[in-house]
Simulated scan of single mutants.
Amino acid sequence: MAFRLTQEQVAAYHEDGFIAVKGFCAAAEVNKLYATALADNAMQQHALDLNDQTGKKTRLSLWFTPGNDVFGYLTRSHKMVDAAAALLDSDAPVCHFHSKLMQKEPRVGGAWEWHQDYGYWYKNQFMFPDQLLSVMIALTAANKENGCLQVIKGSHKMGRVNHGFAGEQVGADMVMVTNALKTMELVYCELAPGDALFFHPNLLHRSEANLSEHPRWSLISCYCSQSNLAYNETSASWKTPVQVVPDEAILEWEAASLGQADFLKKENDPALKDTGWEQ
């Protein structure tokens, strides 16, 4: 049977700002995705290193247009796109803004400071945060030991808070974060390989450095309604409806190399540019 979010899951997303879906990807799918991430040279050649406030590095590879590679088949799959459509606040076609492979290596993978994704995407001048969302797919186990995602439940209802630079990252105003932690529940989102976490762009979240002996790798795909205009975004994927493929494509279709993907270059990321309001 085709995957569909339940009405209860949709309601929980809007109430809490996130939902976790266990076993969203089958073990065979996860194995193929992780093996590709390790073996495809393009993923490593285009990886960006971003320093946290202590100087530890988190590596990520970010691309825009989903292609005919195994990651493109996942982000274009019915189960991903249909779930995004059920959660986005629009009836317009679903578009793929970007995907990124997060690579936190054992003992050296850096932290992500408290932030909202819309704290970054506001700089892209997207108009409507409710018409954006992120989907994290765990490729390896994510737990407290290796720096799993932490979220403040319900914090998306605060709207966008001010952000400034924290190392090479964009971090949320810590006064508001502290107030949010006094008011709302802190949740550690521990995921098994193949689990999915859907979360709102105004949900406050962070992750600790990976000081464990085990890697923490995940894919995060970000979706946007075609009706959500972005006035400072040079890529075109955010306004191009996803060409949906069957879920079976992930395992059964011939996959191209990621070398054809349109990867982000660090110097072109508007989120890392100073606009003046970060001070």
Rank of each mutant, 00 (worst) to 15 (best):
A26R: 14
L219Y: 07
P106M: 09
A138F: 03
A142I: 05
S61N: 05
L181E: 12
D269C: 00
D69N: 15
N179H: 12
Q103S: 11
M127T: 15
A138R: 04
N68H: 12
G154R: 04
A84G: 06
F18K: 06
G194M: 02
V10H: 02
S134H: 04
L229D: 13
D82L: 07
D82N: 15
G109N: 09
L48C: 02
A27D: 15
A141E: 15
C95M: 01
I137G: 10
M1H: 14
N124W: 13
K153N: 03
Y73S: 14
S221V: 12
A172P: 01
L48K: 00
Q45L: 12
Y223R: 07
A47R: 04
D269Y: 02
Q243P: 04
D117W: 01
E190F: 11
K157D: 10
V135L: 13
N68A: 12
A11G: 04
A141L: 13
L133Q: 06
K22A: 14
Q260M: 08
W121D: 06
S218C: 07
A27C: 11
L38D: 07
D247P: 00
V70F: 00
C224V: 06
S227G: 08
M184S: 13
A86Q: 13
A236G: 14
F128C: 14
I137M: 10
N41P: 11
A196P: 01
T75W: 05
P241R: 08
Y122V: 12
A138V: 04
C95A: 07
I250D: 07
N31E: 13
T183M: 13
L251P: 06
A180E: 08
S155P: 01
R216A: 05
S90W: 08
E252I: 04
D91N: 15
R206T: 15
E252N: 08
H96S: 11
C95K: 01
Y34I: 10
V10R: 09
V244Y: 05
K265D: 00
V10I: 10
D16R: 15
A261N: 09
D274G: 03
Y122L: 09
L181I: 10
D262V: 03
E113L: 13
D173V: 08
N41G: 14
S77Y: 06
L60Q: 11
D49H: 05
F126P: 05
Q103D: 12
R59T: 12
V242I: 15
E278S: 03
A92Q: 02
I220M: 11
L272F: 14
Q279A: 12
A261W: 03
M102Q: 11
G171N: 05
V151H: 10
K265I: 02
A39H: 04
K22L: 10
P93W: 06
V170L: 13
S218V: 08
L87C: 08
M158V: 10
E168L: 06
S61W: 01
F71K: 03
C222Q: 15
M174N: 12
V187L: 00
K144Y: 10
P129S: 06
L139Q: 01
C25G: 10
N68K: 13
F71L: 00
Q116T: 04
A35N: 14
P246V: 04
W112I: 15
A27Y: 11
S77G: 06
A261C: 09
K104M: 07
S218L: 06
L101D: 06
P246D: 06
E8S: 13
T183G: 11
G55K: 08
D89F: 09
Q45Y: 07
E190I: 07
N268P: 00
I19M: 02
H115A: 07
D52T: 00
S155F: 00
Q243W: 10
V30M: 08
